[in-house]
């Protein structure tokens, strides 16, 4: 089975340590009930709208924008090694109860570039099965919102 290789120095990241400066003006002030970080800095208006919908969705228990969090996925485009930084992690109660939430990685796409299919394939074929096979980081899934 495919298994994820964790960062040996820092295998588990935390929203606890996220702090950064930005000059971007599109931002969403998060609900403290659902997000540990007080702002989502948005790359597009769609992301702010996505936050609004997440906060009103009855299955969502927590979410975070993956910025300054260190969640990175190495992938290959042709022979070139690149890093994919997914947009959001959303913790969803999908019927397994509050102690076994689904960690859903969401990519919010304004438009789909050529590398999108390589990122999606890497997440679906390697990263998600790899992390799920570890068994120690809960259940994970990936979805692309086009």
């Amino acid at each position: 089975p495919i298994k994820a290789m964790l960062d040996p120095y820092n295998p588990t990241g935390s929203t606890n340590f996220v702090n950064f400066n930005t000059s971007k003006s599109i931002r969403w002030e998060t609900s403290s009930k659902l997000c540990h970080i007080n702002w989502v800095i948005c790359d597009s208006d769609w992301e702010a709208e996505f936050c609004r919908v997440l906060e009103s969705h009855d299955r969502v228990r927590a979410y975070v924008k993956n910025q300054g969090l260190g969640l990175e996925v190495p992938y290959k485009m042709g022979s070139e090694v690149r890093k994919y930084i997914p947009d959001f992690v959303v913790r969803v109660d999908d019927g397994h109860g509050p102690d076994d939430l689904l960690n859903l990685i969401v990519e919010v796409k304004g438009y789909r570039r050529e590398d999108a299919k390589d990122k999606k394939a890497t997440m679906e074929n390697y990263w998600v099965p790899g992390v799920n096979n570890l068994g120690t980081y809960g259940r994970w899934a990936f979805a692309e919102l086009c």
């Binding site: 996505f50 919908v53 969705h57 969803v92 999908d94 859903l104 979805a143």
Partner: peptide, 16 residues
């Protein structure tokens, strides 16, 4: 975006 997000979450909830 709202129906799309609902659909997305319902779909992953059904398949996982």
């Amino acid at each position: 975006i709202e129906p799309a997000v609902n659909e997305l979450i319902e779909n992953v909830c059904m398949t996982h």
